[in-house]
Design a protein around this nucleic acid. Structure first.
Length: 558
DNA sequence: GCAGCAATAT
DNA sequence: CATATTGCTG
């Protein structure tokens, strides 16, 4: 999974057969580029006229995987028509002139990247990354757009549940899309094969367009660590990073007090910590495996991989020391993240029906035992008993109570694009807080509504992905935006009857056309943020999306 | 074997 | 002291 320079070299034949649309007025450049790209075994179609290219794309959209377009190929006004029209393809804009506003415009119109001429071989070699990334974004977008049409979203903790609940609302005409989403969801729950890791990593990097390969290199240290710490888990349960959460029993060989290497990766699911509460004596038995008996702490890491970033600024290396035998007396540290999962599970089952084994099942945290959960449940119930009657203490308030007022609490959390700040994860979730304590479900906070999307002909950065509020309200709403860095969702006001516009669309499934519209929208604007709080699509699903696009030739596993 | 409560350990 | 774990009972 580590993406080293060597690995990339080993991939040289991956993009073989990738179909590239090349648009440039300069014939010499075209032929030069064509041969260069063909050397890399891309299949290149050249155009020197934007309209021709446009016709080609619209008549045979499946003929291209990626487009490279010279900015000035339009009739004097720049070649934005293609960029504006074609949304299925990752489009790379090029120019020999560096003009920031042009770059801005290109990116704002959805270009995958802006490359200044001359185009380096490295950049060309990495074209395929945009294709993968686009597939990934499309899936994210799709899923996100479908979420509002899913019943009881607030009770769903996994994309699979969300999808199953919403499945019936999705129309026949969308079956292929539905399948794509299904596989996306399915594979987040299933375990992942190792061979996907490499591509997974690549996806991450490809979201930062420029010279992704350099970033891969710079990241290899961290992922190296991850590699090492993963081994025990993979052996134990075959669970793969980036899938369901798992317990990471990692010993720190150098610093005795606390292990800080942990793969923090997602805003929704964070790490929990398990302390190994053993006397030095009891630890002696494992010192053969983990040569530093002082090592005390072990972490449970609920982990999500795709867009996540490892928070591993460690200056020391961790090493795997764990077989399950060594996990004997693990003390679970119920971090806010873990607790959040716990509460969500309890919520889903209903407080009355929540029993440890079921909760454990729902939490899907590898290594957590039923006992751990039972204990936690005991505490949870005690607190509820004592504290819930006091209305002013919201910490234990049942989300259902809130849902009576705000039935449309979204599943959304924070865009994964901005979730790289591991340190900020915990602060959002008080130790005993649960979903009901999030800003959007606070009393006085308006319920949520699916955004209304609108295309601006001259869209610019400010309008980028901003939802347009219903006419009655407008973007100047005095209500705070849902706390996403991109300010992505705007809440709506509570209706006088306490219900929302959305609730009606929940009770009655939306019209087919409506969903069609939504999905089309999602497909057209795949660069928009990810479904918030939901796990991003797995590598597998991205691959299947790629297959759908006719790309079967995936990188060889290593 | 499990849930749930109580006692005990950290 | 808070809370995780262990022990015990139904």
């Amino acid at each position: 999974m580590v993406c080293t320079a060597d690995d990339l070299l080993g991939w040289k034949d991956f993009p073989k057969g990738l179909r590239v649309l090349l648009l440039d007025e300069d014939e010499t450049f075209l032929s030069e580029m064509k041969s260069k790209l063909e050397e890399m075994e891309y299949i290149v179609s050249t155009f020197c006229n934007e309209n021709e290219a446009l016709t080609a794309v619209s008549s045979k959209p499946e003929s291209f995987h990626v487009a490279i377009i010279e900015v000035n190929t339009g009739n004097g006004q720049g070649s934005f028509k293609l960029l504006e029209t074609v949304k299925d393809l990752p489009i790379i804009m090029t120019s020999s002139i560096h003009c920031l506003s042009t770059v801005m415009k290109c990116i704002a119109l959805g270009a995958a990247e802006f490359l200044q001429k001359p185009l380096s071989e490295d950049k060309l070699r990495n074209l395929w990354q945009h294709v993968v990334h686009k597939a990934y974004l499309i899936l994210c977008r799709l899923f996100m757009m479908l979420v509002p049409y899913i019943k009881n979203v607030s009770n769903l903790t996994t994309p699979e549940q969300a999808y199953n609940a919403g499945g019936s609302a999705i129309t026949e005409s969308l079956k292929p899309v539905k399948e794509a989403v299904a596989s996306m969801i399915q594979l987040q729950i299933d375990t992942n094969g190792h061979e996907n890791q490499k591509l997974l990593e690549t996806e991450k990097f490809s979201s930062a367009p420029s010279t992704p390969q350099l970033k891969q290199g710079s990241r290899s240290l961290n992922t190296d660590n991850q590699d090492q710490t993963d081994t025990s888990n993979e052996k134990d349960n075959g669970e793969q990073e980036g899938e369901s959460k798992f317990v990471e029993t990692t010993c720190n060989n150098i610093v005795p007090e606390e292990l800080t290497i942990i793969g923090y990766s997602h805003s929704k699911l964070g790490g929990a910590m398990v302390k190994e509460e053993g006397s030095p004596k009891s630890l002696k038995t494992e010192s053969s495996l983990c040569s530093h008996p002082q090592s005390k702490n072990v972490k449970i890491d609920s982990n999500v991989g795709v867009n996540g970033t490892k928070k591993a600024p460690s200056t020391f290396h961790s090493s795997s020391c764990g077989t399950k035998k060594n996990r004997k007396k693990l003390k679970v540290d119920w971090t806010s993240e873990l607790h959040k999962q716990f509460v969500q599970a309890v919520e889903q089952l209903g407080v009355e029906q929540a029993i440890p084994s079921r909760i454990l099942e729902l939490m899907k945290v590898e290594g957590l035992t039923r006992h751990n959960v039972a204990s936690h449940l005991q505490k949870y119930r005690m607190h509820r008993k004592h504290i819930e009657p006091k209305e002013d203490d919201r910490r234990w308030q049942h989300p259902r109570d809130l849902q009576r007022i705000y039935p449309q609490k979204p599943v959304m959390a924070y865009p994964t694009y901005h979730s790289n700040h591991a340190t900020s994860a915990n602060q959002f979730y008080p130790v005993w807080g649960h979903p009901g304590t999030y800003p959007w479900s606070q009393p006085g906070y308006p319920a949520w509504q699916p955004p209304v999307w609108k295309t601006y002909p001259g869209m610019h950065l400010d309008a980028w992905g901003c939802p347009v509020m219903p006419p009655s309200q407008g973007p100047s709403s005095t209500y705070p935006q849902v706390q996403t860095p991109s300010g992505y969702y705007s809440p709506e006001t509570l209706q006088h009857d306490g219900s929302t516009q959305r609730s009606s669309s929940l009770d009655n499934y939306p019209a087919e056309e409506e969903i069609d519209k939504v999905v089309k929208e999602a497909l057209n604007r795949p660069w928009l943020p990810l479904p918030l709080g939901l796990r991003p699509p797995s590598t597998e699903s991205v691959l299947s999306e790629l297959r759908r696009q006719g790309i079967c030739n995936i990188p060889p596993s290593k």
